[in-house]
Design a binder for these strands. Sequence first.
DNA 1: AGCCTCCTACCTATCACTTGGTAGACAAGT
DNA 2: ACTTGTCTACCAAGTGATAGGTAGGAGGCT
Lengths: 185, 185
Amino acid sequence: MSETTLETILTVARLQVQAHGYDGLNFRDLASRVGIKAPSLYHHFPTKAALGAALARRYCADMQAALDAVSQADAAPRACLLAYPGIFRKALTQDNRICLASFLSAQIDDLPEDMRPEIRRFIDINVTWLSEHLSTFEPEDIAMRRADAIYAAVAGAQLTARSSGGVRRYDDIIASYRSVGLLPA
Amino acid sequence: MSETTLETILTVARLQVQAHGYDGLNFRDLASRVGIKAPSLYHHFPTKAALGAALARRYCADMQAALDAVSQADAAPRACLLAYPGIFRKALTQDNRICLASFLSAQIDDLPEDMRPEIRRFIDINVTWLSEHLSTFEPEDIAMRRADAIYAAVAGAQLTARSSGGVRRYDDIIASYRSVGLLPA
DNA sequence: AGCCTCCTACCTATCACTTGGTAGACAAGT
DNA sequence: ACTTGTCTACCAAGTGATAGGTAGGAGGCT
């Protein structure tokens, strides 16, 4: 049970943070969603900060796995880059949530120490993956800068779409990125 | 004096929200920064939500003014579009803050009713201004979609730069947008 | 002038409520 | 007997908000 409960806590917490941020995560509400009482959470995580750090670490691992899955599904770099925006699209379709890292980037000043490096690592994971695929088209240094731009642009599209327009707007913006050549068409 | 106090409240509150979000704004801290006591704030705004709404309205007006200033400084659409990212750059150089609307877009679900339309209006103001200048190069419907993409991309660059890299990274990402052709070079 | 009333802008003191976190007990599995 | 996972019952700190009061200025009235 312990294994499952811990998994459940991390999953529910992630959804909560994706919708309301780190501040919007509170132990009573989280516990009730999981189906236990608030103090029981302390059996799994000593502090809220520890939970947050575990959450961020897990989110990085999940993203790495998702990216690897894309790479394995189709080895062609162009196909991978075409699929990339789809990963971020999912969050929007799940009750208009956004990427955990985007929310936490905004709140970074108020985050516990242990969470901050994980957010930077999340961005690194994305940029590295993107630049690996881009470097088949362009020299490596240019690919790296382009990867940065793509990540930022996709994150911005998600954020903008969340506030108004929803997935529809996200799709439109991504289409614009493609027609301009920021992303392969 | 009343005029000045109210102005001060709105300015200090804006800086606070740009750094910590709407949740990160609290009356005691805000009041002490302004130099008055917390309950005195209720003399100027009946509720926190009312303050937030006034803040958002003011932010829209300021952005409109900033955009108008750019348009007047140089009527050439290309020059205006070149200057656009500079407006968002300022927030980062002020203690690594971000655009109020970006922060509030993330928190939109937890915002008072009165604030939400203002955020959408803020985006509209930006997109409209951008598309007006873009439409000298492209047909209007394409300009509109491109304007959406530019706004989202710039917001994303700001958010990404805040979490790591700072203004330096922002400048790099904007440069990438330009070299790709999303923004005029 | 002197007085009276009203208003603005602020104050102290306190409210009800939510937050993260703790202490200690209880039951089940080994 | 010990560990694991959960519970009930708390606590201190901080939140938005309210009640009721005060200092000082503006303006009309006699």
